[in-house]
């Protein structure tokens, strides 16, 4: 099982080595595999949403980063609010601090197997547990419509905020948010076959939602 380490953007110095590994993984997955952007000379991928609003969960196996998530409260600028607001025609662009945008989830290529108890499912369980502990109501963001049923496979309930639309190179995408509650956590734990918490942190436990955030100066 992974250890899911949680830290805020301001705490990234506590994870200097893992952070570096992860930015390189992001470059490999989002730029070299998916070709979202032009390659960066330094071989790392970052974007404008890597800032003080973000909390990160890195899944570690034997100290190595194997999976990840970036969480940002929706009262701060998000990928949905700044780039894809037109995908929220139905419900409006989410702006509540207890709605959390979830982006940058990757799994290292050699661990993209394993079925229900996969590394990805373990990461999903960590995201749900942390969001629940932090008082979030919903977590979600923009995603491929084709893979939307996967949430149902984990026993999670989703709500679309608008109709699906085509994104060049990614197919039909939709903005959808998942209900954060005890049921959702219980259901994914059933799928995983374990109730053990994977969550870890170094230093102070980071707070997800604005206002409670622990800030660090470097």
């Amino acid at each position: 099982m992974i250890e899911a380490h949680v830290f805020s953007y301001g705490q990234r110095h506590l994870y200097a080595d893992e952070w570096e590994q992860w930015l390189r993984l992001r470059h490999q997955v989002y730029i070299e595999e998916k070709r979202w952007h032009e390659p960066n000379a330094d071989g790392r991928e970052t974007d404008q949403f890597d800032n003080d609003a973000a909390t990160y969960i890195l899944g570690l196996l034997d100290g190595r980063v194997v999976t990840s998530a970036r969480l940002i409260p929706c009262n701060r600028p998000t990928l949905v609010s700044d780039v894809f607001p037109h995908f929220c025609e139905r419900a409006g662009v989410p702006d509540r601090p207890d709605w959390i945008e979830w982006t940058r989830t990757l799994t290292v290529p050699e661990l993209r197997s394993g079925g229900r108890q996969s590394i990805l499912t373990q990461l999903c369980a960590a995201v749900m547990e942390y969001c629940l502990q932090e008082g979030a109501a919903k977590v979600g963001g923009i995603q491929e419509l084709f893979f939307l049923p996967k949430w149902k496979h984990l026993g999670w309930k989703t709500t679309p905020l608008g109709l699906p639309q085509e994104i060049e190179g990614s197919g039909e995408c939709v903005v959808a948010f998942i209900d954060v509650n005890e049921t959702a956590l219980g259901n994914i734990r059933t799928v995983l076959g374990t109730g053990r918490s994977p969550l870890r942190h170094r230093g102070e436990r980071p707070r997800l939602i604005d206002g409670d955030r622990v800030e660090f100066t470097q």
Partner: peptide, 8 residues
């Protein structure tokens, strides 16, 4: 068919 453990 959903919410089952790994079949193998």
């Amino acid at each position: 068919l959903t919410g089952q453990a790994d079949p193998l």
